[in-house]
Write a protein that binds this DNA or RNA. Structure first.
Lengths: 126, 126
DNA sequence: TTTTATCGATTACAGGTGTAATATCAAATG
DNA sequence: CATTTGATATTACACCTGTAATCGATAAAA
């Protein structure tokens, strides 16, 4: 399993959103949120390539980078391991924490209701 | 915010469950799940004390360790930052991932329904 | 009381991470 | 063609982590 550090993750997020991008495009995209030197971003791109998280095509002088793992897969795997480590595998207590902090949006609740309904449908016909 | 590494977290989990414990008790408690040398566990205890995550009382020769931060607070803070980093703050997509992997237990679903109900109650009278 | 067994404290050491600076090499410019 | 520019590759470096081993002090044992 590929390990992606926090700083690296920010780079992945950019490339999961738009892809492929040149190193400079990634630097620009991160400009708003991160106060990183251009060299820092290039280092992160390099490490992500070494780790097999990113690939690139040579477009002449500059490279064009793209993710080799999907955001969805990464989210799934990390969620699983996070909930395992902190909540011993049960996700509801995590959601309860969000609720207690008023961090549940109406959209979240709507989606959760939907999920529950599907889940109950599943249970019935098996 | 105190940063607790993965290995350190396992030690915290033991002490969140029973507290206070001597170093040897912690070593024993971890014996099942982790294949760590006694020295390794002592190092982790030490680092956690340095970080301010654990305190201890001197009970003669050996120390008696106890958490200085609650499991609940830690879970809350880590959940928040995890969901922020991977899901841009929305928790429902995380739960959706669990559902899709059949990682939702009946207990989870029951608890989620309860949460939603409370949440809707809250919304009404404000 | 001298020796030994234990504790916690300190030190070790390789690999990862955050955060760049420098080196190298090829493309663009003059 | 020679030079400058700009991109990637390599190197840097301190701190964190995983995983212990060694040191030093003190309590227990002989």
């Amino acid at each position: 399993m590929i390990e992606i550090s926090n700083a690296e993750l920010s780079v992945m997020q950019v490339l999961w959103q738009r892809q492929p991008l040149s190193a400079n495009d990634v630097v620009a995209a991160l400009g708003n949120e991160k106060d990183w030197h251009e060299k820092t971003v290039k280092t992160l791109l390099n490490r992500l390539v070494s780790k097999g998280a990113l690939g690139f095509d040579k477009e002449g002088r500059a490279y064009s980078y793209f993710p080799l793992i999907t955001q969805h897969d990464y989210q799934l795997e990390q969620s699983q391991s996070f909930v395992e480590r902190l909540f011993f595998g049960r996700v509801a207590p995590l959601v309860a924490g969000f609720a207690s902090q008023n961090k549940l949006s109406a959209d979240d609740v709507a989606q959760l209701k939907q999920l529950i309904e599907s889940w109950e449908q599943e249970q019935k016909h098996d």
